[in-house]
Nucleic acid binder design. Structure first.
Lengths: 189, 189
DNA sequence: CGATATCTATTCAAATTTGAATATAAAACA
DNA sequence: TGTTTTATATTCAAATTTGAATAGATATCG
């Protein structure tokens, strides 16, 4: 289950990438990206996010209505300045978040930030994950657990999870530092 | 964010472990188990689950009212036969689920199933994860991704996630097969 | 050329979650 | 003894998500 901020990030990012877009295209983008794994957004969530973003002045609807399409009429949107600011804030917090769905959405759009910014955020993420590993490893367990919190396997599951998050962060960080991918304000040749 | 079925499993398991319980105790159990990591259940979710489980005949309220407590009055529940059946169904599906939160809840209560059953479920989980790894590894990627679904890092995040799930499953399976922990209908000495 | 399938596009009610508020009783303190 | 704190216990409105339904327009098939 995705959080609202992840949906907002995905919606804003999808519209920004296209310049002008509408609910169905956003939905198609998101579901085509998901690979049945990292997102499971339903139409209602996308349209809800669009309505809310519009009411908050993050996006605004335009009436181009160039009827070069098949099917019912669309409502098209562009992202406002305020929306761009929101997008960057959501993106930055996604790249630092320990949650894997947030991170996925962040990585999907990371090239819309400068390379150095992404490096700094991923380094921050690494520090938070290391703290989390330290905490989890400090938890006491019992071979005959008297309650679930003491169960070695339960603690093990979460240690494994965050250790994998650490490896993931370091891998991406290394690639970005090594010059892979094209980031904001880097010309492509 | 937890799914409803995970909350139901946790609530039923918590009541079953205590025999008789009430909302606040269930909430305390669940939050004391979480270690700030694998659950983040709010009061409203627990009470909602209790009301729904009661309306479905999975639990029933009893009026023992042995006022040996401090604070406002409670509403106490026991799990019905129907609720026990539901608990086992939820538990079995949690142990097979690829979702880590479901698995965590499943592991927390796995000792309420026979050892052989748990082994069979974890083996099934392993097979589903292997299928998932195969699928993810078959996805095409591009060094200059034209869309997020093609991004090597995004695919890499999810390959890493499921590979870690595989390792976790195999580790727990090995421990259970090696005779660790006390399961249903195994006497303790 | 009429039926029906398909793709496009959105809406809506019902279910669920969240965050905050409310409320009771005992304990602790001054 | 009064007042504040702490622990117990639940409720509720608002926000969000889900699942299903609705609906327009072209394509396809016999």
């Amino acid at each position: 289950m995705l959080t609202i901020s992840t949906v907002r990030l995905l919606v804003l990012g999808s519209i920004l990438r296209r310049g002008i877009s509408h609910g169905y295209a956003v939905l198609s983008d998101i579901t085509s990206w998901h690979a049945d794994t990292w997102t499971n957004v339903k139409p209602g969530s996308v349209y809800h996010a669009l309505n809310k973003l519009e009411s908050q002045g993050m996006i605004k609807s335009i009436n181009s209505e160039v009827n070069v399409k098949l099917g019912p009429s669309r409502k098209e949107y562009t992202v406002t300045k305020k929306g761009e600011t929101e997008f960057e804030a959501l993106l930055e917090s996604a790249l630092v978040s320990i949650d894997i769905q947030q991170l996925s959405a962040g990585v999907a759009f990371m090239d819309m930030l400068p390379r150095q910014k992404v490096i700094a955020l991923l380094q921050q993420r690494r520090i938070e994950i290391e703290r989390s590993i330290g905490f989890l490893k400090s938890l006491p367990t019992e071979e005959r657990p008297s309650e679930p919190s003491m169960h070695p396997e339960l603690v093990g599951i979460w240690v494994g999870y965050v250790e994998n998050e650490l490896a993931t962060t370091e891998r991406i960080l290394a690639h970005v530092q090594a010059g892979k991918y094209v980031f904001k304000s880097e010309e492509e040749k």
